[in-house]
């Protein structure tokens, strides 16, 4: 009888100890947002416009463009240093931002936007 009770107490201590180790390793609170975690910003392409046309982000943030028009668009750096592939309806293109840039749609030259890195 005593043996069974001792085993139960040992098991309880083991479980509590394991939980403590887990909490210590995870910093007690894993819902905190790491300030260095990049933020994702979404630019919607709709009715022949980038929306928002101009956005400010932190260095390392991610910008995702989503084409919601039924005509194809792309995202091309203003000096054509890089470009996405043509994006059909529902397609997305993401980029980690390291510096400010202006861009346009090389299929519809009048569509323009900018991403500015703020301090």
């Amino acid at each position: 009888m005593n043996t069974v009770r001792n085993h139960s107490v040992s098991l309880a201590i083991f479980v509590v100890g394991l939980a403590c180790v887990f909490l210590v390793l995870t910093g007690f609170n894993n819902t905190d947002v790491n300030p260095n975690t990049p933020t994702k910003h979404v630019v919607t392409i709709y009715q022949m416009k980038f929306n928002p046309e101009n956005i400010s982000v932190k260095k390392g943030d991610i910008v995702e463009w989503v084409n919601k028009d039924f005509v194809p668009h792309d995202v091309t750096e203003i000096n054509k240093k890089w470009t996405s592939k043509p994006l059909n309806e529902g397609d997305t293109f993401s980029k980690v931002v390291t510096k400010s840039f202006k861009y346009f749609c090389s299929i519809h030259l009048v569509m323009k936007g900018s991403v500015t890195v703020k301090d």
Partner: peptide, 10 residues
């Protein structure tokens, strides 16, 4: 309409 207007500007 916005497609046609974009074409006109282009």
């Amino acid at each position: 309409m916005p497609i046609l207007e974009t074409h006109l500007h282009h």
